[in-house]
Structure formats: structure tokens, C-alpha cells
Design a protein around this nucleic acid. Structure first.
Length: 411
RNA sequence: CGGGCUGUAGUGUAAUGGCAGCACGAGUCUUUUGGGAAGAUUUAGUCCGAGUUCGAAUCUCGGCAGCCCGACCA
């Protein structure tokens, strides 16, 4: 798209009310807009990043048999009363509201209850299982304290997947697959080297839950990491017997701050019991469905990526999640139009800076936004084009056709 | 929810009970155009409410908001 038509613009000054450097760049460059503490709006650039992340997650969820659906955000109080989680004392992050007739509703903080209830209409036999469903949905959580920009917000997008299986064995098989799919997601968005499977508290129905923690100083969690094994333990469960159980030695562990970018839980029969979600096995025996839940927050992931990948000038997006692949800067009137057209024809996502502003501003803004490839056309470049990769220092002149071919192959 | 700090223009600051000012930013025009250029011009503010006072950004009370630390975080 033409940058002259992009309604957002970057600010020269950093926002006063953001601490985390990645977040400060996101606001300055016009990716997101803060409405109030813990509430953010995604502007076109930020929205594109969010969609890229979503698509990667979607592909990996589909690859393990996930079926995408969309549950409602307005939730039925009576459904929640079945699990006992309607009470604010039990679930303290509720946002609640009322219909005109005064009956109460909940704004979705999570979806175990409504989905378990929904599944009652579709599960009755072992032949119906397993079922894996997921959605990208807005969650509302009335956090006592929102912080770190889009890393912890009161309204946020979440990919939540739920598994419905006929036994611990079937559950375990899927759980392991989900683990693999999650690691693939984090690797595809560029966080592979910094994201570690982390053992955390499992709740009532299983020994552990698993978190995916990305090492970053801005993180709220403290984990103890065994780099060699690529495993970590959340501080909340750091105890001798647990380390022994996991085969980890205290001496091998390194204390680091990390952002929880995903988590997966075994729910056992917790919800199926409350909702009487049962199936008949081959022997006509009635058994509870065994469940699991699996979450990733695309917005938090975007924030984490900005936090991990930036330098003193701005964000350095990994190619897979960048809002555009190419930032084409035109320093000389009308030189860029043809190349812009060619890039579009080649279906390469390009942001074309056709604005009539100084070269310095264009460069500074390109660095700030952080698109992977920067192409410059000017008097200097003549019939060639200058190529610079955001993460690298050097620039080189290249043949236009060659660059087009290269971009098309590399994506 | 406990503790701390803080609220003056988009940002950073000044005005210590007496005319709300400056810089940067943003807008318009002109000249520029390889690293946030220059000139002209315009724009915009005392968080809200009550009180004290001849007079409040300034003092008092109440509220609201922001940031940080802690607790919390299926």
C-alpha cells in the first residue's frame, strides 16, 4: 500500500506512559493506540502483524486436527453456575453486565464452560471422540493491575483450543501433539531460540501444566532454566521434589525473567463432571469426557516479539510476522511507481513510501517500523535499486529484476 | 487489593496565592530532499468536583486517572 494513504503516522516522541521499549516503539510507529491502562486498539500496521501471527497459529492448529469455530463473548450466567465459577470469589477477573430485563451476563474471560455445555449436544459415543476445537476470540479479564503495554491487558485476543477425548491415553497423545504444534508456532514467529517449555502448577487434575516462556527482561514470570535440556520450571513450583521428578539439578538452573506466551492444561474430568458431559464406550459404559485447554495470546505474542526484536532505532520484525515484506522508499519523484507496480504484480507485500518528505524522515521511519527489506530508489541508484535488510548493517546496489526474483522466492 | 510516586498543550517543562509562558511536536504555505532540513504562520493546556480567598495551577477536602513495587494471575 502507499504510505501516503496510510492514515497513521509515526510520532517523534516516545509515549510518556509506556515503560517497555518494544511497546514504546509500537506506539510511536503507530501499530497500536492506547485507550486506557490495559486496553489497546490495533491500527493498520499492528493489525497486519496480528493477522500474520493468527494465520501461523491457525495453520498449526489445523495441522493437529483443530476445527475453528467462534463462540460468543456474551455468556450465560446459568451455564457458569454449573461449574461454580460464576462467583467473583471463585473467578475474580469477571466483567459482568445486565440485560434490559435485569438478568446478568458475563463477558467471556474464558470458554471452558460454554463450550463444555455446547458439546453436550454433540458427544454421546466414543465414536464422536476425539474432538479438537479452537477459536480466536476476545477475552475480558478485569485484571487488578494491567501492565507492560499489550503484554497484559483487560481485553485481549486469545486463541483457545479445547480437546475432548475418551481417555487419559487419548488425551495424552493429543497433549503431546499440541506441545509440538506450540513449539512450531513460536519457532515460526522467530522466538524459537528464546522460548522454553516450562513446568508450572497443574491444578487439581494433573501434576503439571505446561507454559511456553519467552526469555525477556520485561517478563512477569521468573523461571529456572536448564539451557542444555531446553526445559524450565516456573518459580511458583520450584521445589526439591519437583526438580527430582523432572530430572533437573538445581545447580544447572539459571534464573531468568520470561513472558508466558502460551500455556496448555490437562483438565481431566473437571468440567465434564460439572456438566455431565458423558459418552458411552464400546461396552456401553458411561464415562466422563477427558478435556484439555490450550491458549496463546496473539497480541501478547506480537508485544513479546517487539520486545525481543528491536534495536535503538526501532523494531526489527521477523519476516514471518512483519506487517509488510518490503518497504520501498522513493527519494526521487515518480521513480518508484514502476517498481511498486512490479512488486504488487509479484504479490509481494509492499509499503511504498511515496510521500513528499525528506529522505532522513523516510529512513528514520523505515527503521522505526522495522519492515525486513528496505528498497531505495533515487538519483544515486540510477537503474538499480538499493537493498538493505533491517537486521543487517550494510546496503548494496542490485539489479531490479534480480531483487524481484529473490523476493519472490524468499517470500 | 496493600504500599510508593505523580497529574500544567501530543511530549518535556516554567509560573512557590496575583496576566498560564517556553521548547519540541502537530497543521498550513514556501524553499528543500541520502539519515527526523529551513523560514513564515497557525494550533493546543492547569485531570474532575466542592471549599477557603478580593483572587487558586498553587492551599484544604473528595473523586478520577497514570506509572512503579508487592499480592493475584485455569
Amino acid at each position: 500500500m502507499k504510505q501516503s494513504e496510510l492514515f497513521t503516522k509515526s510520532f517523534r516522541t516516545f509515549p510518556a506512559d509506556e515503560e517497555a521499549q518494544g511497546m514504546r516503539f509500537l506506539v510511536r510507529a503507530g501499530f497500536v493506540h492506547k485507550v486506557m491502562a490495559g486496553v489497546y486498539e490495533y491500527l493498520p500496521l499492528g493489525f497486519r502483524v496480528l493477522k500474520k501471527i493468527e494465520q501461523i497459529i491457525r495453520e498449526e492448529m489445523n495441522a493437529i486436527g483443530g476445527q475453528e469455530l467462534l463462540l460468543s463473548t456474551l455468556q450465560d450466567k446459568t451455564v457458569w453456575q454449573k461449574s461454580g465459577r460464576w462467583e467473583d470469589k471463585v473467578l475474580d477477573v469477571w466483567f459482568k453486565t445486565k440485560l434490559k430485563n435485569d438478568s446478568e451476563l458475563g463477558l467471556a474471560a474464558t470458554h471452558e464452560e460454554p463450550l463444555t455445555y455446547l458439546m453436550k449436544s454433540y458427544i454421546s459415543s466414543y465414536r464422536d471422540l476425539p474432538i479438537f476445537v479452537y477459536q480466536f476470540q476476545t477475552k475480558f479479564r478485569n485484571e487488578i493491575r494491567a501492565k507492560s503495554g499489550i503484554l497484559r491487558t483487560r481485553e485481549f485476543l486469545m486463541k483457545d483450543l479445547y480437546s475432548f477425548t475418551d481417555s487419559e491415553v487419548q488425551h495424552r497423545a493429543f497433549y503431546e501433539k499440541a506441545k509440538g504444534a506450540y513449539l512450531k508456532v513460536f519457532s515460526r514467529v522467530g522466538l524459537g531460540d528464546k522460548t522454553f517449555l516450562t513446568f508450572a502448577s497443574g491444578g487439581t487434575f494433573s501434576k503439571y501444566s505446561h507454559e511456553f516462556q519467552t526469555i525477556a527482561p520485561v517478563g512477569e514470570d521468573t523461571i529456572y532454566l536448564d539451557r542444555k535440556k531446553g526445559l524450565a520450571v516456573n518459580k511458583e513450583v520450584l521445589r526439591e521434589e519437583i526438580l527430582a521428578d523432572l530430572g533437573l539439578k538445581r545447580g544447572d538452573l539459571e534464573e531468568v525473567k520470561a513472558v508466558e506466551v502460551g500455556n496448555i492444561f490437562s483438565l481431566g474430568a473437571r468440567f465434564s463432571t460439572d456438566f455431565n458431559l458423558m459418552f458411552k464406550d464400546q461396552n456401553e459404559e458411561l464415562k466422563p469426557v477427558i478435556m484439555g485447554s490450550y491458549g496463546i495470546g496473539p497480541g501478547r505474542l506480537a508485544g513479546t516479539i517487539a520486545e525481543v526484536f528491536h534495536d535503538e532505532r526501532g523494531i526489527v520484525w521477523p519476516k514471518t510476522v512483519a506487517p509488510f515484506q518490503v518497504h520501498l522508499l522513493e527519494l526521487e519523484k515518480a521513480l518508484g511507481r514502476k517498481l511498486y507496480g512490479d512488486l504488487q504484480k509479484a504479490e509481494i507485500e509492499v509499503l511504498y513510501d511515496d510521500r513528499k518528505i525528506s529522505a532522513g524522515e523516510k529512513f528514520a521511519e523505515a527503521d522505526l517500523i522495522g519492515i525486513p527489506w528496505r528498497l531505495v530508489l533515487s538519483k544515486k541508484t540510477g537503474k538499480k535499486v538499493e537493498v538493505k535488510i533491517r537486521s543487517e548493517k550494510n546496503v548494496k546496489l542490485a539489479d531490479v529484476k534480480g531483487v524481484l526474483r529473490l523476493l519472490k522466492n524468499k517470500g
